[in-house]
Amino acid sequence: MSKFIPFTDEELYQAHHKDIKEYLESIGEKVLHSGTEYMWEAHDSVKIRGHIWYRHSTGE
């Protein structure tokens, strides 16, 4: 069973405003430019725009 981990307001703010492309690149993931968005190479159905992402294959 998982344990609840409380996050501070600052941690939640940082998570919601982190540039996803920059984060993925910082951990060695490849991100490709795709029109006005970016595409995560490992999961090409995931489109990224700043701190927002959308996964077309699941509609999330």
Rank of each mutant, 00 (worst) to 15 (best):
H43C: 13
E29K: 03
I27E: 10
T8H: 04
K3A: 04
Y13Q: 14
K18N: 15
A15R: 07
E25L: 10
L24A: 13
I20H: 08
H43F: 11
L32R: 04
E22P: 02
Y54R: 09
G28S: 04
H33P: 10
T8Q: 03
I27G: 06
T8R: 00
K18T: 14
M39L: 13
S34G: 10
E11A: 13
H33K: 12
I27F: 08
L12P: 06
M1S: 01
K30P: 01
E37R: 15
E37T: 12
K47P: 03
A42W: 06
M39K: 13
S34R: 11
I52W: 14
W40Q: 08
S57C: 06
H43Q: 09
K18M: 15
W40L: 12
E37G: 08
Y38D: 09
Q14W: 05
D19Y: 02
H17A: 15
K18D: 07
L24Y: 11
H16K: 11
E11Y: 07
H56T: 06
K21Y: 03
E25Y: 06
Y23K: 12
I52H: 13
E11Q: 15
L32N: 03
K3R: 04
I52S: 13
K30W: 00
K3M: 03
G59V: 02
V31M: 01
H33W: 03
